[in-house]
Write a protein that binds this DNA or RNA. Structure first.
Lengths: 339, 339
DNA sequence: ACTTGGCACTCGCCGTGGCCGAGTGCCAGA
DNA sequence: TCTGGCACTCGGCCACGGCGAGTGCCAAGT
């Protein structure tokens, strides 16, 4: 009972602060939210909440603002996920449906997410490791240079240049093409590199050293490289939160330009259907200690093809943001599943 | 003579202001630059320069700062291009040489340029229109869905999904592959779409309506789409110029997220070897009226494959920035030419 | 045991006013 | 044409003081 009201007060503080970006005082709280108690009572509750570390005062004689811990409690226990309106869902869907290829899907999603949430959006390119090989093409580019093109069942095309130690000609290229296609079509890309290595027995001896190891390496590299590609949009939105960030804006932008950091933020959230929130220091990135990350995985079934999410100030409308991220992830997952 | 000294004064003002970001006064000028005249004389020159619109005072009793027009004169007549040191050139070269494919070249260039100049860097993807076709692959993805993969002589691979109105099978796909390869290999991509359309006579009648128009459209789309792709890096550098931009930072970031705007900025600079500078309103983008753009084209020979450049505050070290942009463009051009 | 109104206290914000100094414009003399 | 001198302007800085929002505590009420 008493405990309940305290939580209610915390929720009210978070909600008001998210809206106004100003420390919220006891009087305003008691008025705006029909708590049914006087400001004095609210003061006592606030005092207790501060004691427990959920809220803090920026300076004496100012209102309270939530701490990291306070936001965490809010997200965990006090907020549901605002469902999106039918119109919003439809808008998402139709915006994504215009995409012409996979690259376009990623670019559209990231822009959409940035616009919807008014935050910085990040989308990881879908992993290739669970795709399977549909066709492999080998073309000579020069006397010692091959181009290997891999087409997957999701319509993704990846290429890689191979510098060969031994001379190659068109004949070798087509032989390679035949062999590779015979043994790899239908294989999942993640396992294809093993197959290539095992396959070396059946290739002409003089090709073995050069080709099998190289193509194996290429396949591995492809899978890895794709997984660490990300798209980002909406950095301009960071400036809206100028009060929250002030001079840290620069280090935030710098951090967001590092692929590694982005991967850390959204790469770990690979469960589909569950939206994870990391608040402040929970992001494990020092430059982002004043931000929060809302992320999820996307893809058909329980295995995510990749992650997506947004980065924004801790002072964020979590229910809405979580809903938006979840919705976009769902549609992107469906879109890729249908391919 | 008199005219000469005035220009010298302007140069000194620009150089000092670029360094200090503070309005520069007559006394400091006379001291720091050995002009051989007294502050009073400098004052007279400054007065004249202000009259002519090259410099201005932010407020009475402050020093002078260059106007757009002042920077323009400086760039046109007062500054050469600082040659890069041998070490710097080598660094550029070795950084770019690590690239594994074309995507990587672009990403590396843009990062390099951002780091070198400490500004926002923009690199346009190389145009496909002057590449020629090396190989075309056609694969079925579904009963009415084809994937067309085009490999160019620069090692670039582009793909596009075609939704066919009539059913297609593997047989049709390989027929298409044969035909297309026979007639298109060696053609420049820009002209290939015309060839495809002319080629419709020789294909089986039942394929004509669906295939020729579609592949033609695909080729055209490819060329266009590639040309409007750009990479950007170094947005964090904008915050260094926080004094110059203040609250316009947001609109600048927003502008820079628009492909269209970026194309406008660097797409027009397509002469190789010549570095163009647009100062303030010359950029023709309202949000960038307080910035300057230094851009050039890159590519072998006189025809540029694309543009690259940097966006920064008007208060910029033009000689150095121009040198850096030119150097990176030169190496990227060589790298792509050698492929 | 909670809640409530009252009250004294704290402290950041903001507008005022005065001082300082950099920088200017002008002028008379070299 | 250049130079030194001189009066003037005005933004930046700081110290001061009033205002008000918000707090903590306490004693009284339910």
């Amino acid at each position: 009972m008493l405990e309940d009201r305290r939580l209610e007060v915390l929720r009210a503080i978070v909600e008001d602060f998210v809206l106004s970006n100003e420390p919220v005082g006891s009087k305003a709280l008691a008025e705006r939210h029909s708590l049914g108690v006087s400001p004095a009572t609210v003061r006592n509750d606030m005092s207790a909440l501060e004691e427990e570390g959920y809220i803090t005062q920026p300076h004496t004689s100012a209102g309270r603002i939530p701490t990291d811990k306070g936001y965490r409690l809010f997200v965990d226990r006090l907020s549901g996920v605002k469902p999106l309106s039918r119109a919003e869902r439809r808008a998402i869907q139709s915006f994504l449906e215009g995409a012409v290829d996979l690259d376009d899907v990623v670019r559209r999603s990231v822009r959409l997410l940035a616009q919807l949430t008014r935050q910085v959006a990040v989308v990881q390119y879908p992993s290739l490791s669970s795709s399977s090989v549909r066709h492999i093409e080998v073309v000579t580019l020069g006397p010692r240079r091959l181009l290997m093109v891999i087409i997957t069942d999701t319509g993704r095309v990846e290429q890689r240049i191979i510098d060969s130690l031994t001379p190659v000609d068109d004949e070798i290229a087509s032989e390679l093409r035949l062999t590779l296609n015979r043994d790899l079509v239908g294989q999942r890309l993640a396992e294809a590199s093993d197959v290539v290595i095992a396959l070396s027995d059946r290739t002409r001896p003089e090709l073995r050293p050069c080709v099998t190891t190289m193509t194996g390496a290429v396949l591995e590299a492809l899978v890895e490289r794709q997984e660490e590609r990300v798209a980002m949009a909406g950095t301009a939105n960071l400036t809206r939160a100028t009060v929250d960030f002030a001079d840290s804006l620069r280090s935030i932008l710098e951090a967001l330009e590092e692929q590694v950091v982005l991967m850390k933020l959204i790469g770990s959230a690979r469960e589909t259907g569950t939206v994870t929130v990391r608040i402040g220091r929970e992001t494990d990135v020092d430059a982002l200690r004043s931000t929060a990350v809302v992320a999820t995985g996307y893809g058909r079934g329980p295995f995510a093809l990749g992650g997506m999410g947004v980065v924004g100030p801790m002072r964020m409308d979590y229910p809405w943001t979580m809903a938006a991220v979840r919705a976009v992830a769902k549609y992107v997952g469906e879109l890729l599943g249908a391919d």
